[in-house]
Amino acid sequence: MEYTSGSSSWRRAVGRAVGILRPRRRAGRSLGWSVGVPAIMVAAGVLFTTSANIASGTDLREDRRPQMAQVITEQQARIAEEQATASRLRTEVDDLTGNLAGSDTPIAQARAQAEARRRAAGLTALKGPGLTVRLNDAPASAGNSRPDGATNDDLVVHQQDVQSVVNALWAGGAEAMTIMGVRIISTSAVRCVGNTILLEGQVYSPPFVIKAIGDPSRLHAALDAEPGVRAFQDAVRDYGLGYQVVSESEIVAPAYTGSTDLTHAEVAR
C-alpha cells in the first residue's frame, strides 16, 4: 500500500482503519437483534448486581426447613393456648348457666334439653367396652432394604388407611371414638401431613392409635368387612406394616372440645 503526502491521504488511512473496527451488518441480520443482545446483557448485569446487593453475602437458596419447623412449633403452641382459653370460657359459661337454671325455669328446661343431646353430639365423656386399633409404618430394615417393587408410599400409613378404620368403626355402631387420645365426632377431619396426621390443629406421628366404644364383636366384623381395611391388611402382609386390633373391657373417651360450627352439609342420597 502506498501512502502519499498530504492531509487527504491521512484522512483516507484513518477512515479505512475505523471502517475495519466498525461492526458491519451482515446480510439478513436485523437491527433489532443487534440492539437486543446488548440490552439483554445489560439487564442480566442489573439482575446479578441486584441479587448480590439483596443477598449481602448470604445464600439466597438457603434451606428454609428449620424456619418452617419453628413456625409450626410456634403455631402449635398458640393453638394449645387458645384451646385452653376456650375450655376455661366454656367452663365459666356452664357454671353461670347452672346457677341461673336454679331460679329460671326456661333456662332450666333449655339446659335439660341440651344435656339430653350432648351425649349424641360427643360433648360428654363416655366409658365402656370396645376396641383399640393400632396402625404403624413398616419398620426400618438393616441396610435400608425393602420388599421387591416396594416404594416409600407402600411402607407408611396413609390418611385413607386411618379414615377406613374410622368409617368401619362408625358403621359397626361405635358410640364414641378417639384418635391418639383426642375425641372425634362425625364432623372431625383427619388430614395427612407427610407421614403424620393433623387432628384438631395438632400433628401426630405413627403409630396411630384409634379407640372405639361399642360392641367388640360388631366392631370386629365391621373392620373385616371394610374394603379399605382389607387393602391395608394386604399391605401388612406384603410390606410389613403394623396392624393390631385388641378388645378392651373399658375404654375412656373424653368429651369433644373442638369446634362444633357447621359450615356446609347436604342430605345423603
Rank of each mutant, 00 (worst) to 15 (best):
I72V: 12
R78E: 05
E81W: 00
M68S: 04
V157K: 04
L89Y: 02
A84D: 14
G57S: 12
V246G: 10
Q244M: 12
L131P: 06
F48I: 15
R12C: 02
A140K: 13
N152E: 15
S103F: 05
V203Y: 09
A86F: 05
S30T: 15
I210G: 01
E250A: 00
S164Y: 03
D154Y: 13
V190E: 01
D261M: 13
R26Q: 09
S56I: 06
D161W: 06
S56K: 14
R78I: 02
A120D: 14
A255G: 07
V93Y: 04
E82C: 05
V267W: 01
N195W: 05
V182R: 13
R11P: 05
S205A: 14
L31T: 08
G194Q: 07
G201I: 07
R78S: 10
T4R: 15
M177F: 06
G57Q: 12
P207T: 04
N167L: 06
Y239C: 10
L169M: 10
Q113D: 06
M68E: 05
V267N: 01
F48E: 10
R88P: 02
A268Y: 01
A114G: 05
L219C: 06
E250T: 02
T4K: 15
V203E: 13
P66C: 09
A140W: 11
D215A: 14
A222H: 01
S205Y: 05
L169K: 04
